[in-house]
Design a protein around this nucleic acid. Structure first.
Lengths: 258, 258
DNA sequence: CCGCCTGACTTGACCGGACAAATGAAATGA
DNA sequence: TCATTTCATTTGTCCGGTCAAGTCAGGCGG
């Protein structure tokens, strides 16, 4: 391999332990950070980079793959490589791989349905849910326990689109939370889950059911489930009286380049 | 390209829009799910897979790359490819790319330090912190506001290792939260952040400072910052009186194969 | 028996080449 | 002028080949 100006390999070729594609990626990352190309600009073509760095197309492609994986660029067949960002921001990721971690309790909890009713969303409710006015939903109120014999874990309010209401029949029959039952029956998957957590008091009408004093502080966890088209199809709201429950998350730092 | 038994490409070669490496990856994924190899077993070598699927080594390597990115296998130079999992679990990821999302409030908040003192962790405190007995820490109590003129957002208790205590001098002088100030001064990065969220009441001695009634429900958010060696070096605990604050997270579903 | 060396094997990196698929600008025709 | 077609360019896919780096089992020597 002959040397080129891009990597200064005439001096470091024998000493640099990084693979060549890594050197190219690091150099491109440094140039992005230095502002050589603004966001939105086109990076040089693969052919140009091969000439600049005096490496094969294979090596350039591996380097660009790293940049794309980092979110710095976007590559388009026929078009070229576009700058998306000048630097990789510090990232922390919570990676949830099992249902217990997602819901914050074991899968085998018991849900006792108290009441259920169908309604059509008026303007105010529609705005709260994030749906259209007049759309049909089912509202379910229930108590969740770890086991039948344990103290209530939370008071749960479920909203589910009326078109998926038959999944409610599977509660207590099939294992898993409602969103999994919907997926089983209708093939609708949650592409996005929005979680809101706030503190409040246990409302009086829930206190006795939860076996706590009225006014006990409670952790309110609300989850909105959105399908692949961004449509809300389920909302689950749990009121957990203190100190029975702590919501936990572990955030891992993601390195800059893979 | 001649045909082989692996992909049955004699019939679908012109019709299957998937790239060849994708077909190989999908077939290997199906075989894993079918239990052809147990966890811990070695997958056939690249050369064997080339023969089985009648494709080049390049194509096999691309397929294996996909499997590795999915966490199904681990590839080791000189050794081979080991099965890590038989299927990709459903995954949801919270991807946090800016500080406001991490801390749940804008970077430019004002922290008013009330008091600070150094202490050595006794056995009980050491167990709570997750550190060794006798280690030196600084405890800081402060009020956080969005601006000097707004109502208090939360009552904050910070614990920081005594060896990093000079970073406290940068509070209010340099922008950013304490963990960023530690990183700037000492180069110590949070590799992991553990978040606990619970509901409680505002303690009486904090109520007046927070300008709320005693007993007001509060959202308690505790963050433990761990360095690259898994050592806790900072703990931040905020008590947010209701209803001033909601903790939000967005979880995105991750597809099975990239 | 244990430690070291060697050699076969496996994956990682890199080169060169060819063709396919997609894009966007320019040219053409109505 | 606008819509369609054409063409040059760019990235995606795939093949074949070579050498490097790493692993591990077997053999040898102390």
């Amino acid at each position: 391999m002959n040397t080129g100006p891009g990597l200064g390999m005439n001096k470091r070729e024998q000493a640099d332990p990084r693979p060549r594609y890594r050197q190219v990626a690091d150099e491109l990352t440094a140039q992005l950070r230095a502002g050589v190309w603004p966001v939105g600009a086109m990076l040089p073509t693969e052919t140009e980079l091969c000439a600049t760095f005096a490496v094969s197309r294979h090596t350039v492609r591996e380097a660009l793959r790293l940049l794309e994986e980092s979110g710095l660029v976007q590559r388009r067949q026929g078009s070229g490589t576009t700058v998306l960002a000048l630097a990789t921001p510090d990232r922390f990721v919570q990676d949830i791989t099992d249902m217990a971690e997602l819901l914050q309790y074991p899968q085998e909890t018991r849900l006792t349905v108290l009441r259920a009713r169908t309604f059509e969303a008026d303007a105010e409710t529609a705005a709260q849910i994030g749906c259209g006015e007049g759309e049909a939903w089912v509202r379910v109120e229930a108590i969740r326990r770890l086991r039948v014999t344990t103290a209530p874990l939370c008071f749960t309010t479920l909203l589910i689109r009326a078109e998926y209401a038959e999944a409610l029949d599977d509660i207590g029959v099939l294992p898993g939370p409602l969103y999994a039952l919907i997926e089983r029956r209708y093939g609708v998957q949650a592409a996005l889950i929005e979680v809101d957590i706030a503190a409040s008091n246990v409302p009086p009408h829930q206190a006795e059911l939860l076996e706590v004093e009225p006014g006990t502080p409670a952790l309110l966890i609300r989850r909105r489930y959105l399908d692949g088209q961004g449509r809300v199809y389920e909302i689950s709201e749990g009121a957990h009286p203190a100190p029975r429950f702590t919501y936990r998350a572990t955030l891992k730092r993601i390195p800059e380049l893979p």
